[in-house]
């Protein structure tokens, strides 16, 4: 093993540890942010008793969930039942590896970084399916079936939108895509590909099971959907995976469409985080503004609008790239 590969292994390990810390910290911050945003949108203060402005609220929740009894329904499949939450959380750590927070803060920059993200983000759907199947509960199974059909459907327009960007830049390396964009907002891809950005942003609501597309865990119909039977840490891991996935899709959107770490002044990871958190705020804003969509509306929007528009956008991009 030569020195170069040792260094690669070292950066990978340090990157993974940093990424796990980043995910956990972000999930805690986002839970607090979500509850504060919900509060302010509904003209309430939100959590404000524990710590300044309630920032320690998610710590209390985490400790509570950690010390909560873990139950398994008597007829559930014990191996798959406990495997599913772990399986939903673990790929997320891998998915954060190719994200370019800044030229320095990139754990791993492969040529096919975008493909890596698109390939492994599908494992989350598998975890949802396993959780729903192994719980031996009708609501869990309905939730899982909805989750699978929804994620499979929304992956296609998402892919088409991402592919248009890949066409435009001729690479699947996220760092290079950011490099080719400029610092000022009109040099970002969101200006050359507004339709792709719109399709991507709608699709990520379906991909991350966020309201208004949170049908796999629709409270009004399915109790709690695929995680109905999970208590304590099983539920917490699903929760963590959902927030980590939100951060992930917003980070990918930042790199693809919003110029990544580049800003008008002083390039760096702060621009990346500010843009990603702006998108996360919009996701929360949407959640607390719109009611849940019906399932036929959800799929009609996907198959009748997003998919044809995405295909047309891709065709137009290919045409323009060939022409100029």
């Amino acid at each position: 093993m030569n020195e170069f590969s040792l260094w690669t292994v070292f950066t990978l390990v340090v990157g993974l540890v940093a990424i796990l810390a980043f995910i956990a910290g972000n999930a805690m911050a986002l839970v607090w942010m979500e509850r504060k945003v919900a509060g302010f949108i509904q003209r309430r203060p939100g959590p404000n008793q524990l710590g300044p402005a309630g920032v320690l609220q998610s710590v209390a929740d985490a400790v509570k969930l950690l010390f909560k009894q873990i139950l398994k329904p008597s007829n559930a499949d014990s191996i798959i039942f406990f495997l599913a939450p772990i399986l939903s959380f673990f790929p997320v750590a891998l998915l954060f590896m190719p994200l370019p927070f800044s030229p320095f803060f990139t754990a791993y920059s492969p040529n096919l970084g975008l493909l890596l993200i698109l390939a492994f983000s599908g494992i989350n759907v598998l975890a949802v399916l396993l959780a729903g199947w192994s719980s031996n509960n009708k609501y869990s199974l309905y939730g899982a079936a909805r989750g699978v059909s929804q994620s499979v459907a929304y992956e296609i327009p998402l892919l088409l939108a991402v592919l248009a960007i890949a066409f435009q830049h001729g690479t699947l390396n996220l760092s290079e895509i950011v490099e080719q964009q400029g610092g000022w907002p009109w040099q970002w891809n969101v200006f050359t590909q507004p339709l792709a950005f719109l399709i991507y942003f709608i699709s990520i609501f379906g991909e991350t099971n966020r309201s208004p597309f949170d049908l796999p865990e629709a409270e009004s119909e399915l109790t709690a959907g695929f995680h109905t039977e999970y208590s304590g840490m099983g539920f917490a891991l699903f929760f963590l995976a959902e927030y980590a996935n939100m951060v992930l899709v917003c980070c990918v959107a930042t790199a693809l469409f919003l110029g990544g770490w580049k800003g008008p002044f002083l390039d760096g990871f702060w621009w990346f985080l500010a843009k990603a958190y702006g998108l996360l705020f919009i996701m929360m804003w949407v959640r607390w503004t719109y009611p849940r969509a019906r399932f036929d509306m959800l799929l009609n929007l996907n198959w009748k609008w997003l998919l044809p528009l995405g295909a047309l956008n891709l065709l137009a991009t290919a045409f323009v790239m060939k022409l100029f």
Binding site: R35, G39, N48, Q57, K64, E219, E229
Partner: peptide, 18 residues
């Protein structure tokens, strides 16, 4: 506003409620 005391998270599933 119950959420001031962190108690506004009404869980639909008894498995996740306290």
């Amino acid at each position: 506003d119950m959420s001031r005391f962190g108690a506004e998270v009404f869980r639909p599933s008894p498995r996740q409620a306290d």
